[in-house]
Design a protein around this nucleic acid. Sequence first.
DNA 1: CACTTGACCTGTCCGC
DNA 2: TGCGGACAGGTCAAGT
Length: 286
Amino acid sequence: MPELPEVETVRRGLERLVVGHRILGVEVREGKSFLIDERVKSSPVGSTVIAARRRAKVLILDLDDATSLVVHLKMTGQMVVRGAETWGGGHPSDSLVDALPDRSTRVILTLDGDLRLFFNDQRKFGWIRLMPTSAVEEMEFIRRLGPEPLEPDGLDEFKRRVARHPRTSIKAALLDQSVVAGIGNIYADEALWAARVNPSRLVADVSAVKLRQLFESARDVMELSLSLGGSTDRNYVDAEGRRGAYLDFAHVFRRDGDPCHRCGTTIKKTRVAGRGTHYCPHCQRR
DNA sequence: CACTTGACCTGTCCGC
DNA sequence: TGCGGACAGGTCAAGT
């Protein structure tokens, strides 16, 4: 569920809350959730967080010893900060998560300033990887990433990359991180609705005008979502444990059975590219 | 080769 | 109420 707007919201929180703090301890509760590259020392303890970056759906915490903590939240990952600088050790009333740690807590980082950073991940798909900062950009899946919708000059590159997959559905292409980076199931459906493109349509049958509208629609829905703190379907929270509000404004995602905001036709749910797919049968005719 | 499906997990929801 | 099964979705490996 965490897609680009959610990961960016978490990044902003971590930038504010943990950059400048020194790591005092690491508690790994689930070994597969915390991986250490063989090229680095065995622990980040003693290092200071100097930057919080993001590439597509990946979070990167740079440390002052030329290593980085690379984090992928996958579907149910959370990075939640608790401590004196947030709420005196307690948690705010609008937090979705209760007392931490809980049973989904996989890794706990203790930082100076009386802070604790919890990596929670119900389904254990996510991971944190400690590696040399110089090696982050060389990770295979980062090298392959396509342009992000929020990049102002990404359209041409998107068009070039999507054209390499003419026989696949446009929805599958939008979900392919090597075609365009940062889109997941929610924003794929929302962008397709905004651009009035049927999710099952083959890439080869989508006009250049529609491709441009799709890229721009993806940018628009992501900017709106960012302004609302992202989407909370069931699990997502930001670095302070708060949910995002975007789904209150969604046009199709999880709205099957409800009327289309443009034409009133009942929103349908089907399966495209192996994923639940929401669309308006009238606005998004094939 | 291009594309689709299954695996990885756990929690929730639905029908019987 | 209990229980089995479907479903949720990001990414990669395996299959067609």
